[in-house]
């Protein structure tokens, strides 16, 4: 496909004139075709002001409740696996620790898997002895003018703490002392300008996110 064709197709997609099959085919390519993604984003920016031509209209009452019901119903798929497992695991670990303390003083490691937006595993995260180590299992590149920054958000904290910039593949270890890993802590990787977030808080999109929990069977 020539750049001209790609751009015209992206323009027609944003305009909305592609039929169902063409639109689905374009969407399927977006994930693996950064140039197409750029072209679509550029057209969204160009044409966005036209959205103001639609007259605002109050949606039917109850729609927000319906949206929240759908989200609540969808939650078990992602969360119920996590939370009951976390509680059960915590209890098991607590009970196990009492027995194991004499044998193995080292606390159980915390683990999580950071997922991509399509729920593919991207990073294995393990926290042990105060250090957090990451291993990429599904490396994917990012734009050359951006960097990936690692963050941790302890439960109850309002702002995440930066754990530094990281390569987008390979292994990374955050030494003990930056933050104390604990069960329930959110670990996330965001896309930031070169040098990292200028504000000390995440400014770019979240590439990957996961919640630390005690590993069972260790």
């Amino acid at each position: 496909m020539t750049p001209e064709e790609r751009d015209a197709l992206a323009g027609e997609y944003v305009l909305g004139t592609l039929d169902a099959r063409e639109a689905a085919a374009l969407r399927a390519r977006l994930a693996s075709d950064p140039a197409l993604r750029e072209a679509v984003e550029a057209w969204e920016r160009r044409l966005h002001p036209l959205a103001a031509l639609a007259a605002p209209e109050r949606p039917p009452p109850g729609l927000l409740n319906r949206i929240e019901s759908t989200l609540d119903a969808a939650r078990p798929r992602r969360r119920a696996l996590l939370w009951p497992a976390l509680t059960a695991a915590s209890a098991a670990v607590a009970a196990g620790l009492a027995l194991l303390l004499l044998i193995r003083p080292e606390p159980s490691p915390l683990m999580t898997v950071l997922l991509t937006e399509s729920d593919q595993p991207a990073w294995l995260v393990e926290a042990r002895g105060g250090a957090i180590s990451l291993a990429a299992v599904n490396p994917r590149g990012i734009a050359p003018d951006r960097v990936a920054e690692l963050w941790a958000l302890p439960q109850g904290a309002t702002a995440p703490t930066s754990l530094g910039l990281i390569p987008t593949e390979g292994r990374v270890t955050v030494p003990p002392g930056r933050i104390r890993p604990e069960a329930g802590m959110l670990i996330e990787i965001t896309l930031e300008p070169p040098g990292g977030s200028p504000t000390g808080r995440p400014t770019g999109p979240i590439l990957f996110i996961g919640r630390l929990m005690p590993a069972r069977g260790t």
Binding site: E41, E44, R45, H48, A51, E57, P59, P60, L63, R66, I67, T70, L71, A74, E117, E188, L191, P193, T203, G204, P205, I206, L207, I209
Partner: peptide
């Protein structure tokens, strides 16, 4: 139908909010 579309869109927003990149445009857009 428009209510269905808004429902689908907000479910998507809840799931995909992490992909929003302010460097590439406004939240409204």
């Amino acid at each position: 139908a428009a209510a269905d579309a808004l429902h689908d869109a907000f479910v998507k927003v809840a799931r995909a909010a992490g992909q929003f990149d302010p460097a590439r445009g406004s939240a409204e857009a």
